[in-house]
Protein backbone atom coordinates (compact mmCIF):
# COMPACT_ATOMS: atom_id res chain seq x y z
CA UNK A 1 0.00 0.00 0.00
CA UNK A 2 2.96 2.29 0.22
CA UNK A 3 3.16 2.37 -3.56
CA UNK A 4 -0.29 3.84 -4.19
CA UNK A 5 1.03 7.16 -5.45
CA UNK A 6 3.91 7.44 -7.85
CA UNK A 7 4.85 10.97 -8.83
CA UNK A 8 5.48 11.02 -12.55
CA UNK A 9 7.68 14.07 -12.39
CA UNK A 10 9.33 16.31 -9.88
CA UNK A 11 6.76 19.01 -10.56
CA UNK A 12 3.87 16.61 -10.08
CA UNK A 13 5.05 15.52 -6.65
CA UNK A 14 5.68 19.11 -5.65
CA UNK A 15 2.14 20.14 -6.52
CA UNK A 16 0.60 17.26 -4.58
CA UNK A 17 2.71 17.84 -1.51
CA UNK A 18 1.86 21.53 -1.64
CA UNK A 19 -1.87 20.85 -1.75
CA UNK A 20 -2.04 18.35 1.04
CA UNK A 21 0.06 20.40 3.42
CA UNK A 22 -2.01 23.50 2.74
CA UNK A 23 -5.24 21.75 3.60
CA UNK A 24 -4.11 20.98 7.12
CA UNK A 25 -3.22 24.57 7.99
CA UNK A 26 -6.01 26.45 9.86
CA UNK A 27 -7.67 29.45 8.26
CA UNK A 28 -5.62 32.55 8.43
CA UNK A 29 -6.35 36.25 8.28
CA UNK A 30 -5.76 36.45 4.52
CA UNK A 31 -8.38 33.81 3.88
CA UNK A 32 -10.89 35.77 5.95
CA UNK A 33 -10.03 38.81 3.90
CA UNK A 34 -10.65 36.77 0.78
CA UNK A 35 -14.14 35.83 1.97
CA UNK A 36 -14.81 39.41 2.99
CA UNK A 37 -13.75 40.71 -0.43
CA UNK A 38 -15.91 38.08 -2.09
CA UNK A 39 -19.05 39.17 -0.25
CA UNK A 40 -18.45 42.90 -0.28
CA UNK A 41 -17.97 43.18 -4.05
CA UNK A 42 -21.15 41.18 -4.57
CA UNK A 43 -23.06 43.32 -2.08
CA UNK A 44 -21.99 46.60 -3.64
CA UNK A 45 -22.75 45.47 -7.17
CA UNK A 46 -26.17 44.20 -6.16
CA UNK A 47 -26.98 47.41 -4.29
CA UNK A 48 -26.06 49.60 -7.26
CA UNK A 49 -28.03 47.42 -9.66
CA UNK A 50 -31.06 47.57 -7.38
CA UNK A 51 -30.90 51.34 -7.69
CA UNK A 52 -32.16 51.10 -11.27
CA UNK A 53 -35.14 49.13 -10.02
CA UNK A 54 -35.78 51.57 -7.18
CA UNK A 55 -35.72 54.51 -9.59
CA UNK A 56 -38.18 52.80 -11.88
CA UNK A 57 -40.54 52.00 -9.02
CA UNK A 58 -40.34 55.52 -7.59
CA UNK A 59 -41.18 57.03 -10.98
CA UNK A 60 -44.01 54.57 -11.40
CA UNK A 61 -45.53 55.47 -8.01
CA UNK A 62 -45.32 59.20 -8.67
CA UNK A 63 -46.68 58.82 -12.19
CA UNK A 64 -49.46 56.51 -11.08
CA UNK A 65 -52.20 59.18 -10.75
CA UNK A 66 -52.00 60.01 -14.43
CA UNK A 67 -51.37 56.44 -15.58
CA UNK A 68 -54.44 55.19 -13.74
CA UNK A 69 -56.75 58.04 -14.76
CA UNK A 70 -56.10 58.03 -18.51
CA UNK A 71 -55.72 55.25 -21.07
CA UNK A 72 -52.07 54.54 -21.90
CA UNK A 73 -52.74 54.87 -25.61
CA UNK A 74 -54.03 58.39 -25.18
CA UNK A 75 -51.05 59.41 -23.03
CA UNK A 76 -48.50 58.04 -25.48
CA UNK A 77 -50.10 58.84 -28.82
CA UNK A 78 -52.17 61.96 -28.28
CA UNK A 79 -50.64 65.17 -29.63
CA UNK A 80 -52.63 67.46 -27.37
CA UNK A 81 -50.56 68.94 -24.55
CA UNK A 82 -52.70 71.38 -22.60
CA UNK A 83 -51.90 70.81 -18.93
CA UNK A 84 -54.32 73.50 -17.71
CA UNK A 85 -57.22 71.73 -19.43
CA UNK A 86 -55.98 68.36 -18.28
CA UNK A 87 -54.75 67.07 -21.68
CA UNK A 88 -51.42 65.29 -21.45
CA UNK A 89 -50.33 63.76 -24.77
CA UNK A 90 -46.66 62.74 -24.91
CA UNK A 91 -46.59 62.13 -28.65
CA UNK A 92 -44.91 65.42 -29.71
CA UNK A 93 -42.19 64.89 -27.13
CA UNK A 94 -41.66 61.23 -27.97
CA UNK A 95 -41.42 62.02 -31.68
CA UNK A 96 -39.08 64.97 -31.03
CA UNK A 97 -36.79 62.77 -28.96
CA UNK A 98 -36.76 59.99 -31.54
CA UNK A 99 -36.25 62.31 -34.51
CA UNK A 100 -33.49 64.41 -32.98
CA UNK A 101 -31.68 61.27 -31.79
CA UNK A 102 -32.05 59.54 -35.15
CA UNK A 103 -30.74 62.60 -36.93
CA UNK A 104 -27.79 62.80 -34.58
CA UNK A 105 -26.98 59.11 -35.04
CA UNK A 106 -27.34 59.44 -38.81
CA UNK A 107 -24.74 62.20 -38.77
CA UNK A 108 -22.45 60.73 -36.10
CA UNK A 109 -22.28 56.99 -36.80
CA UNK A 110 -20.64 57.06 -40.25
CA UNK A 111 -18.16 59.76 -39.23
CA UNK A 112 -17.36 58.05 -35.95
CA UNK A 113 -16.94 54.62 -37.52
CA UNK A 114 -14.60 55.91 -40.20
CA UNK A 115 -12.60 57.93 -37.68
CA UNK A 116 -12.26 54.88 -35.46
CA UNK A 117 -11.12 52.83 -38.45
CA UNK A 118 -8.55 55.46 -39.29
CA UNK A 119 -7.21 55.55 -35.74
CA UNK A 120 -7.18 51.80 -35.20
CA UNK A 121 -6.22 50.50 -38.62
CA UNK A 122 -4.53 53.19 -40.64
CA UNK A 123 -2.40 55.50 -38.66
CA UNK A 124 -0.43 54.51 -35.66
CA UNK A 125 1.80 57.56 -35.47
CA UNK A 126 -0.87 60.27 -35.27
CA UNK A 127 -2.96 58.23 -32.84
CA UNK A 128 -0.88 59.62 -29.97
CA UNK A 129 -2.23 63.04 -30.89
CA UNK A 130 -5.80 62.26 -31.98
CA UNK A 131 -6.82 59.81 -29.27
CA UNK A 132 -6.34 62.19 -26.30
CA UNK A 133 -8.06 64.97 -28.24
CA UNK A 134 -11.09 62.79 -28.93
CA UNK A 135 -11.18 61.52 -25.35
CA UNK A 136 -11.09 65.13 -24.20
CA UNK A 137 -14.01 66.01 -26.50
CA UNK A 138 -15.99 63.26 -24.77
CA UNK A 139 -15.52 64.90 -21.40
CA UNK A 140 -16.46 68.49 -22.31
CA UNK A 141 -19.56 69.51 -20.29
CA UNK A 142 -22.74 69.50 -22.35
CA UNK A 143 -23.50 73.13 -21.52
CA UNK A 144 -20.39 74.10 -23.45
CA UNK A 145 -21.66 72.18 -26.47
CA UNK A 146 -25.00 73.89 -25.99
CA UNK A 147 -23.44 77.36 -25.93
CA UNK A 148 -21.39 76.55 -28.97
CA UNK A 149 -24.56 75.39 -30.66
CA UNK A 150 -26.30 78.68 -29.88
CA UNK A 151 -23.32 80.70 -31.08
CA UNK A 152 -22.44 78.78 -34.24
CA UNK A 153 -24.80 75.97 -35.19
CA UNK A 154 -28.06 77.89 -34.86
CA UNK A 155 -26.82 80.83 -37.00
CA UNK A 156 -25.45 78.33 -39.51
CA UNK A 157 -28.79 76.57 -39.76
CA UNK A 158 -30.67 79.90 -39.90
CA UNK A 159 -28.51 81.75 -42.41
CA UNK A 160 -26.91 79.04 -44.50
CA UNK A 161 -28.36 75.53 -44.37
CA UNK A 162 -31.95 76.52 -43.70
CA UNK A 163 -32.04 79.22 -46.30
CA UNK A 164 -30.33 77.29 -49.01
CA UNK A 165 -31.96 73.89 -48.53
CA UNK A 166 -35.35 75.41 -47.70
CA UNK A 167 -35.39 77.41 -50.92
CA UNK A 168 -34.17 74.67 -53.22
CA UNK A 169 -35.03 71.15 -52.08
CA UNK A 170 -37.57 72.39 -49.55
CA UNK A 171 -39.92 73.47 -52.31
CA UNK A 172 -40.14 69.87 -53.50
CA UNK A 173 -39.66 67.74 -50.39
CA UNK A 174 -41.96 68.60 -47.47
CA UNK A 175 -39.55 67.29 -44.82
CA UNK A 176 -36.98 69.84 -46.02
CA UNK A 177 -39.37 72.80 -46.16
CA UNK A 178 -38.28 75.70 -44.00
CA UNK A 179 -40.87 77.89 -42.35
CA UNK A 180 -38.91 78.43 -39.16
CA UNK A 181 -36.85 81.63 -39.39
CA UNK A 182 -35.10 81.21 -36.03
CA UNK A 183 -32.65 78.41 -36.72
CA UNK A 184 -33.59 76.74 -33.45
CA UNK A 185 -34.92 73.32 -34.33
CA UNK A 186 -34.43 69.67 -35.20
CA UNK A 187 -31.38 70.18 -37.41
CA UNK A 188 -29.51 72.35 -34.90
CA UNK A 189 -30.31 69.84 -32.13
CA UNK A 190 -29.24 66.93 -34.29
CA UNK A 191 -25.93 68.56 -35.22
CA UNK A 192 -25.05 69.49 -31.64
CA UNK A 193 -26.04 66.05 -30.41
CA UNK A 194 -24.04 64.38 -33.19
CA UNK A 195 -20.96 66.33 -32.22
CA UNK A 196 -21.50 65.30 -28.61
CA UNK A 197 -21.85 61.56 -29.18
CA UNK A 198 -19.20 61.39 -31.90
CA UNK A 199 -16.20 61.19 -29.53
CA UNK A 200 -17.93 58.57 -27.37
CA UNK A 201 -18.61 56.31 -30.33
CA UNK A 202 -15.12 56.85 -31.78
CA UNK A 203 -13.44 56.08 -28.50
CA UNK A 204 -15.27 52.82 -27.83
CA UNK A 205 -15.22 51.66 -31.46
CA UNK A 206 -11.51 52.30 -31.70
CA UNK A 207 -10.80 50.21 -28.60
CA UNK A 208 -12.97 47.43 -29.98
CA UNK A 209 -11.17 47.45 -33.34
CA UNK A 210 -7.78 47.43 -31.68
CA UNK A 211 -8.74 44.34 -29.71
CA UNK A 212 -9.05 42.34 -32.94
CA UNK A 213 -6.02 40.01 -32.99
CA UNK A 214 -3.26 41.12 -35.33
CA UNK A 215 -3.04 37.53 -36.60
CA UNK A 216 -6.58 37.85 -37.91
CA UNK A 217 -5.52 40.79 -40.08
CA UNK A 218 -2.41 38.96 -41.23
CA UNK A 219 -4.46 35.90 -42.17
CA UNK A 220 -6.46 38.08 -44.53
CA UNK A 221 -3.50 40.08 -45.85
CA UNK A 222 -1.55 36.87 -46.48
CA UNK A 223 -4.34 35.81 -48.87
CA UNK A 224 -3.66 38.88 -50.96
CA UNK A 225 -6.46 41.01 -49.54
CA UNK A 226 -5.85 44.74 -49.51
CA UNK A 227 -5.80 46.79 -46.33
CA UNK A 228 -9.34 48.04 -46.94
CA UNK A 229 -10.71 44.59 -47.78
CA UNK A 230 -9.15 43.27 -44.60
CA UNK A 231 -10.69 46.08 -42.57
CA UNK A 232 -14.11 45.67 -44.15
CA UNK A 233 -14.47 41.89 -44.31
CA UNK A 234 -12.39 40.72 -41.37
CA UNK A 235 -11.74 43.42 -38.76
CA UNK A 236 -15.19 45.03 -38.83
CA UNK A 237 -16.89 41.66 -39.06
CA UNK A 238 -14.99 40.26 -36.12
CA UNK A 239 -15.58 43.42 -34.11
CA UNK A 240 -19.23 43.83 -35.14
CA UNK A 241 -20.77 43.05 -31.71
CA UNK A 242 -18.47 45.59 -30.08
CA UNK A 243 -19.12 48.18 -32.77
CA UNK A 244 -22.86 47.75 -32.23
CA UNK A 245 -22.38 48.10 -28.48
CA UNK A 246 -20.46 51.34 -29.04
CA UNK A 247 -23.32 52.74 -31.09
CA UNK A 248 -25.94 51.63 -28.55
CA UNK A 249 -23.97 53.53 -25.94
CA UNK A 250 -23.98 56.57 -28.21
CA UNK A 251 -27.72 56.22 -28.82
CA UNK A 252 -28.57 55.99 -25.13
CA UNK A 253 -26.40 58.98 -24.42
CA UNK A 254 -28.02 60.97 -27.22
CA UNK A 255 -31.56 60.01 -26.29
CA UNK A 256 -31.14 61.15 -22.72
CA UNK A 257 -29.04 64.25 -23.37
CA UNK A 258 -30.86 67.25 -21.97
CA UNK A 259 -29.07 70.53 -21.66
CA UNK A 260 -27.24 70.94 -24.96
CA UNK A 261 -30.28 69.88 -26.96
CA UNK A 262 -32.62 72.04 -24.94
CA UNK A 263 -30.54 75.11 -25.74
CA UNK A 264 -30.81 74.77 -29.52
CA UNK A 265 -33.86 72.69 -30.37
CA UNK A 266 -36.52 75.42 -30.05
CA UNK A 267 -38.79 73.80 -27.44
CA UNK A 268 -42.11 74.17 -29.23
CA UNK A 269 -44.74 71.53 -28.48
CA UNK A 270 -45.39 70.01 -31.90
CA UNK A 271 -44.59 66.92 -33.90
CA UNK A 272 -41.83 68.19 -36.20
CA UNK A 273 -42.60 67.59 -39.85
CA UNK A 274 -39.53 69.19 -41.34
CA UNK A 275 -35.82 69.15 -40.61
CA UNK A 276 -36.05 72.82 -39.68
CA UNK A 277 -39.08 72.66 -37.42
CA UNK A 278 -38.64 73.31 -33.74
CA UNK A 279 -38.94 70.25 -31.51
CA UNK A 280 -39.37 69.49 -27.83
CA UNK A 281 -37.68 66.28 -26.65
CA UNK A 282 -38.71 64.49 -23.45
CA UNK A 283 -35.67 65.41 -21.33
CA UNK A 284 -36.15 69.09 -22.25
CA UNK A 285 -39.81 68.89 -21.22
CA UNK A 286 -38.91 67.56 -17.79
CA UNK A 287 -35.97 69.90 -17.20
CA UNK A 288 -37.82 73.01 -18.37
CA UNK A 289 -41.00 72.45 -16.40
CA UNK A 290 -40.26 70.50 -13.26
CA UNK A 291 -40.67 72.79 -10.27
CA UNK A 292 -42.83 75.28 -12.15
CA UNK A 293 -46.58 75.38 -12.55
CA UNK A 294 -46.74 72.50 -10.13
CA UNK A 295 -50.12 73.66 -8.87
CA UNK A 296 -51.75 72.37 -12.05
CA UNK A 297 -53.40 69.07 -11.20
CA UNK A 298 -51.62 65.97 -12.54
CA UNK A 299 -48.71 68.05 -13.87
CA UNK A 300 -46.22 66.45 -11.52
CA UNK A 301 -47.49 63.00 -12.42
CA UNK A 302 -47.29 63.82 -16.13
CA UNK A 303 -43.64 64.83 -15.90
CA UNK A 304 -42.89 61.66 -13.94
CA UNK A 305 -44.66 59.75 -16.68
CA UNK A 306 -42.42 61.44 -19.25
CA UNK A 307 -39.37 60.35 -17.28
CA UNK A 308 -40.76 56.84 -17.16
CA UNK A 309 -41.23 56.83 -20.94
CA UNK A 310 -37.63 58.01 -21.34
CA UNK A 311 -36.41 55.24 -19.08
CA UNK A 312 -38.54 52.66 -20.86
CA UNK A 313 -37.30 53.63 -24.34
CA UNK A 314 -33.64 53.43 -23.31
CA UNK A 315 -34.31 50.14 -21.53
CA UNK A 316 -36.14 48.61 -24.50
CA UNK A 317 -33.42 49.79 -26.86
CA UNK A 318 -30.67 48.33 -24.69
CA UNK A 319 -32.45 45.01 -24.26
CA UNK A 320 -33.05 44.86 -28.00
CA UNK A 321 -29.38 45.56 -28.65
CA UNK A 322 -28.42 42.86 -26.15
CA UNK A 323 -30.57 40.36 -28.05
CA UNK A 324 -28.96 41.33 -31.34
CA UNK A 325 -25.53 41.06 -29.76
CA UNK A 326 -26.14 37.65 -28.27
CA UNK A 327 -27.37 36.37 -31.62
CA UNK A 328 -24.30 37.79 -33.32
CA UNK A 329 -21.83 36.36 -30.83
CA UNK A 330 -23.69 33.06 -30.92
CA UNK A 331 -23.22 32.92 -34.66
CA UNK A 332 -19.52 33.61 -34.71
Amino acid sequence: MQETYKPTSVLDSFVTVGRSSRRSVPWRWRQWKDVFADHSVRLITTAVSLLALVMGIALLIRAWPILSSRPLGELLFSSTWQPVKGYFGFWPFIMSSILVTLLAMLLAVPCATFSAIYLAEYNHSTRAFFKPVIDMLASIPSVVYGLWGVLFVVPFVRDVAGKWIGETLGAVLPFLANDNPTGYGLLAGGIVLAIMVFPIIVSVTEEVLRSVPQNMREASLALGATHWETTKFVVLRHALPGVIAANVLGFSRAFGETLAVMMVVGNVVQVPHSLFDAAYPLPALIANNYGEMMSIPMYDAALMGAALVLLAVVLVFNVGAQLVLSRLTGRQ
Binding site: M216, A219, S220, A222, L223, G224, F233, V234, R237, Q332
Partner: peptide
Amino acid sequence: TRIGLLAQKPFPLP
Protein backbone atom coordinates in the same frame (compact mmCIF):
# COMPACT_ATOMS: atom_id res chain seq x y z
CA THR B 1 -1.49 36.28 -53.38
CA ARG B 2 1.33 34.43 -55.11
CA ILE B 3 3.24 33.73 -51.88
CA GLY B 4 0.81 32.42 -49.26
CA LEU B 5 1.36 31.90 -45.55
CA LEU B 6 0.23 29.24 -43.13
CA ALA B 7 0.61 30.79 -39.70
CA GLN B 8 1.79 29.18 -36.48
CA LYS B 9 -1.66 29.13 -34.94
CA PRO B 10 -4.83 28.71 -36.98
CA PHE B 11 -6.80 31.92 -37.20
CA PRO B 12 -10.07 31.23 -39.00
CA LEU B 13 -11.67 34.37 -40.40
CA PRO B 14 -14.89 35.37 -38.61
